[in-house]
Nucleic acid binder design. Structure first.
Length: 477
RNA sequence: GUCCCGUUGGUCUAGUGGUUAGGACUCAGGAUUUUCAUUCCUGCAUCAGGGGUUCAACUCCCCUACGGGAUGCCA
């Protein structure tokens, strides 16, 4: 076997990409990049009842927009396919037969009802809810009879009854489980499909996965998996269980307490750059103080050894701050590209590229998500609406004088430049004696609809001379 | 219930047997700016508790508490 690092992201296509899964995918990807290994995407679709139409496509496209490109997987394939577990059922069947022959697994004819009753009973007795192993004692004859009768069955793992297992996890280091706490896990369901536990072990082995990097919720399944590797005589991959992502109340991050789908965050106007950077820091940090990373920088800085053990709260406030940061720091052209969609949605036509850039520049300094990007452009695309207080300001004597003066001067001059505007601003103060509070707010209000906002020359430049004159004129009594 | 895992400010975290326990977000105050925003500066606030070990423990060990995960013919 080669020493190549091969890691995999193995989601089940049940709808959307969870931010926790995004982090798992990212860490896998980063580890592959860091070590020059391969990043594999495998679709764990062994539960037909949870099949969601279009989920795989959605998953792949989200990974793509996040920039997490895989080396092997659906569509692009590779030497270890197929990469859909639903297309590998024959493989699993073959291996499970081997397990039965070796006495490491057995058929169980208990019905779902039997199991529910069994669990109930054990619970009331204060025991754990493991399978009681009653089908283990079935004789050859009984088994054959049952099979002949066409009785449905599952195949279970024959877990040792005593002793314990210790293994090493890259994050948690030494972990020990007593065998008598491990259930005789179902390997093949009565519909013939494998469970995650079987499929995952067989695939990881056949695909030569070197490191299993996944969420902590899998930690307690590791004994079953290691037992399988042992039963097959295979060398298990290194284990690496990531701390959970939590809600504000510290429970496992769930949909009930807000968005968890990457798609939702994207739609809301969070940048892929933000999401990647933010999620990378949930459970991993460099020794230094730096916390702003591009994907490329993460590829260099990442290390499995620096993943911490405790779960981390997904803090929206920090996410917002970081998104604001990227909104401001990324190339204006990049933000402009991202923002186009929102202008379209708002029905704002982009006619002048330079003005568009100015609009984006105005907005990016004041917003936290892209969704708000058109808010600051609105005054340029629609009629201004004034409140009572606004009208008071606009109709004051000084304001009226000011507007008349500006209209005159604008009409006198051929072209409206920044220097002209600044000159007029100065002259307003000198010739009219109108300055400060009486100068800027009324003008901005008349032209932009708000006392606060962008600098006057910027507003006027985007508006253009014609519109400046009409808007000022509109405010005359 | 049982098993496993975890615990540095409200949140994300750095840190290590001897530090004034560092940074970021949030919050408060200030500076810059015609305003808002941006930016910058300052401040508030932390080693869950109790026992050990040690000259010395946030750091190592044990216990307790709290939190989380698993306990499916889901992944």
């Amino acid at each position: 076997m080669s020493n190549e690092i091969r890691v995999r992201f193995a989601p089940s296509p049940t709808g959307y990409l969870h931010v926790g899964s995004l982090r798992t995918a990212l860490y896998n990807y980063l580890y592959a990049k860091k070590t020059g290994g391969k990043f594999i995407l495998r679709i764990e679709d062994t539960d037909q009842s949870r099949y969601v139409d279009g989920a795989v496509e959605n998953l792949i496209s989200t990974l793509k927009t996040m920039g997490l490109n895989y080396d092997e997987g659906p569509i692009i394939n590779g030497d270890f396919g197929p990469y859909y577990q639903s297309e590998r059922t024959e493989i699993y069947q073959r291996y499970v037969d081997e397990l039965i022959e070796k006495g490491k697994a057995y058929r169980c004819f208990c019905t779902e009802k039997d199991l529910v009753r069994m669990r109930q009973e054990r619970k009331t007795r204060g025991l754990d809810t493991r399978y009681n192993g009653q089908c283990l004692s079935l004789g050859k004859q009984e088994i054959n009879d049952n099979l002949k009768k066409g009785k449905k069955y599952v195949i279970r793992l024959k877990i040792p009854k005593e002793g314990e297992i210790t293994f090493y996890d890259i994050v948690r280091e030494k972990v020990t489980f007593p065998w008598d706490m491990v259930d005789d896990q179902i390997l093949i369901k009565s519909d013939g499909f494998p469970t995650y536990h079987l499929a995952n072990v067989i695939d990881d082995h056949l695909m030569q996965i070197s490191h299993v990097i996944r969420g902590e919720e899998w930690l307690s399944s590791v004994p079953k998996h290691l037992f399988l590797y042992e039963a097959f005589g295979w060398k298990p991959p290194k284990m690496c269980h990531l701390p959970l992502l939590l809600n504000a109340d510290k429970s496992k991050l769930s949909k009930r307490q807000g968005d968890v789908a990457v798609e939702d965050f994207l739609k809301k106007g969070y940048l892929p750059e933000t999401l990647l950077n933010f999620v990378a820091l949930l459970g991993w940090h460099t020794p230094g103080n730096e916390e702003l990373f591009t994907l490329q920088e993460l590829e260099k800085a990442f290390s499995l050894k620096r993943i911490n053990k405790s779960g981390s709260v997904f803090d929206l406030e920090k996410l917002n701050w970081m998104n604001g940061h990227y909104l401001r720091e990324l190339d204006l052209k990049v933000i402009g590209q991202y923002a186009k969609k929102y202008f379209q949605q708002a029905g704002y036509k982009i006619e002048n590229e330079q003005h568009y850039n100015e609009l984006v520049e105005i907005a990016r300094k004041r917003i936290t998500t892209l969704e708000e990007v058109t808010e600051f452009a609105k005054p340029f695309f629609s009629k201004l609406v004034f409140t009572k207080e606004n009208i008071e300001i606009l109709s004051s004597t000084t304001s009226q004088t000011l507007f008349e003066y500006w209209i005159d001067k604008m009409e006198e001059n051929q072209e409206m430049s920044e220097t002209l505007i600044n000159k007029l601003l100065k002259q307003s103060a000198q010739e009219l004696g109108i300055k400060g509070k009486n100068l800027y707010p009324p003008l901005r209000l008349a032209l932009y609809g708000s006392e606060h906002g962008p600098e006057l020359p910027t507003i006027m430049d985007i508006l253009g001379k014609e519109k400046v004159i009409t808007r000022l004129g509109d405010c005359l009594k």
